[in-house]
Design a protein around this nucleic acid. Structure first.
Length: 437
RNA sequence: GUGGGCGUAGCUCAACUGGCUAGAGCGUCGGACUGUGGAUCCGAAGGUCGGCGGUUCAAUCCCGCUCGCCCACCCCA
């Protein structure tokens, strides 16, 4: 057993994983940019005074604290850094401010690899700061949907709910305000542990059985989105009415942004764990992979950013794209093409004397945008072909003595085994055609 | 942090109730094949049997401690 090991909850990303991972990140980045979002990066290390007290007591324990006299810790998410940035540079950033941020975060919790839980993981956040318009909520939903579609995860569903509606329901069930978040956190487990499970958990929190039953009955709604929200309106609760009217607008706008009504599922049972949401909340799931959990999750949080800005109220809305969950979902659905390397062509080295022939030709291919590598030593050709085969490099070019004399090269496609002796220019033309450069 | 399970080659796993030189498959490297990969055959490298201590004539196996991994609870992406 070697002495080297990984700290629990950390991962190495070997090339085989990194290739699809980078491809997906590039795709996500492209979509963020297409919607007009601008990139932001913030440091891994923040002052503890910035980090602490923003996520709740339990979460504070999960922040990695550095052993350093300045009082430092690793960032826990990307939303608090955004709030800090808004308070420091808010004046020079015209609003609405649309930003995306793709960086790692750290949480000192018990990691369980198989459940996709790590101590270091990447978050891809998109947020729109400075507007309370439902257009913003609709836009964030549409971006989430567009990303999943573009990655081939066509069968997703967006689960939608609203914190004001939930608060109204909890109020109608006559729970005290201080129990509100605790009740919502239990309710949120409905899909996972079922109605009985939720009831059991609420009972174990010493809450009143009558109130619990009242709440569970109110949220046991099924049917179409419009049907459910129309039904909720009948409660004539001020908060519920306000939430429903907000949801109506979002549902309407989202249609114009390329999201089908059947891709959205309004559910009065989805609550999300974080305290700071104030309006619409949403997450995306794959019905075919019910155990996978949510692939993206977010909502509106109108009070969080202001915490750093001296009480000024700054509305905001955003979501996290769970890149690691998306990757494992794609993996299970076999949507990740096998790729061992990005190299398209291996130029073999025939002999020391002909080395420059290979280098020159490889350089011509690269200038045309074809990913090319040269085998660096004149090993026997069998070894060089075996190398290409092991890395699944699709083409091998050999320039041997015979070819070199006549300005030719041997171009072999490994998948078929077909080899042609052609002029170098023709080889380049063929490769450009194949890889559509 | 609490409870349960498990640590043998790079990976997946063997080795009868404690016994002689700890094995196999896959992978890696080399050869059969000095102008051509996948298949086949041959060979090689690779182990302080997680670590420390104890019991024993003798420990990969039994006991104690420790470290690590996995599962459940809690919490989340």
């Amino acid at each position: 057993m070697s002495k080297a090991r990984l700290y629990r909850g950390m991962r190495d990303f070997l090339p085989k994983i990194m290739i699809p991972r980078e491809r997906i990140l590039n795709e996500i980045r492209k979509i963020f940019q297409r919607w007009g979002y601008v990139p932001l990066e913030t440091p891994a290390i923040e002052l503890l005074s910035t980090l602490l007290g923003k996520y709740g007591e339990d979460a504070d324990k999960l922040i990695y604290r550095l052993d350093h006299p300045d009082g430092l810790g690793l960032r826990y998410d990307l939303t608090v850094p955004l709030a800090r940035v808004m308070s420091q540079y808010g004046q020079q950033l015209p609003r609405p401010f649309r930003r995306y941020q793709i960086q790692t975060v750290w949480r000192a919790e018990r990691a369980q690899k198989q459940k996709g839980r790590f101590r270091e993981f990447m978050q891809c956040d998109v947020d729109i700061v400075g507007t309370s318009s439902p257009v913003a909520d609709a836009e964030i939903l549409a971006i989430s949907a567009e990303i999943l579609k573009s990655l081939g995860l066509k069968n997703f569903k967006i689960v939608l709910n609203h914190r004001e509606i939930l608060r109204g329901l909890v109020h109608l069930a006559e729970f005290e305000e201080k129990d509100e978040m605790s009740v919502l956190r239990s309710l949120d487990k409905w899909e996972k542990i079922g109605e009985d499970g939720v009831k059991e958990e609420l009972l174990s929190k010493n809450l009143d059985e009558g109130k619990i039953e009242k709440l569970l009955e109110m949220v046991s709604l099924s049917g179409g989105n419009w049907e459910i929200i129309s039904f909720l309106e009948k409660y004539r609760d001020e908060r519920i009415l306000s939430g429903v009217s907000n949801i109506r607008q979002i549902l309407q706008y989202v249609s114009s942004l390329g999201v089908g009504q059947d891709e959205i599922m309004f559910s009065p049972r989805m609550a999300r764990g974080l305290d700071y949401y104030t309006g619409a909340i949403f997450e995306t799931i794959l019905p075919e992979l019910p155990d996978m959990g949510s692939l993206t999750g977010g909502g509106r949080y109108d009070n969080l950013i202001g915490m750093f800005s001296g009480g000024e109220k700054i509305p905001a809305c955003g979501t996290t794209i769970g890149i690691d969950r998306i990757l494992s979902a794609m993996d299970e659905l076999e949507l990740i093409p096998e790729a061992h390397t990005n190299t398209k062509v291996l130029v073999a080295m025939f002999s020391e004397e002909l080395a420059t022939e290979s280098l020159d030709f490889a350089q011509r291919l690269r200038k045309m945008g074809i990913e090319t590598e040269v085998f660096p030593e004149p090993k026997k050709l069998g070894k060089q072909f075996a190398y290409a085969d092991k890395w699944k490099i699709p083409y091998v070019v050999v320039i041997g003595e015979d070819e070199a004399k006549q300005g030719l090269c041997a171009l072999k496609e490994l998948s078929s085994g077909n080899q042609r002796i052609v002029k170098k220019d023709d080889a380049i033309r063929i490769l450009l055609e194949v890889f559509k450069k």
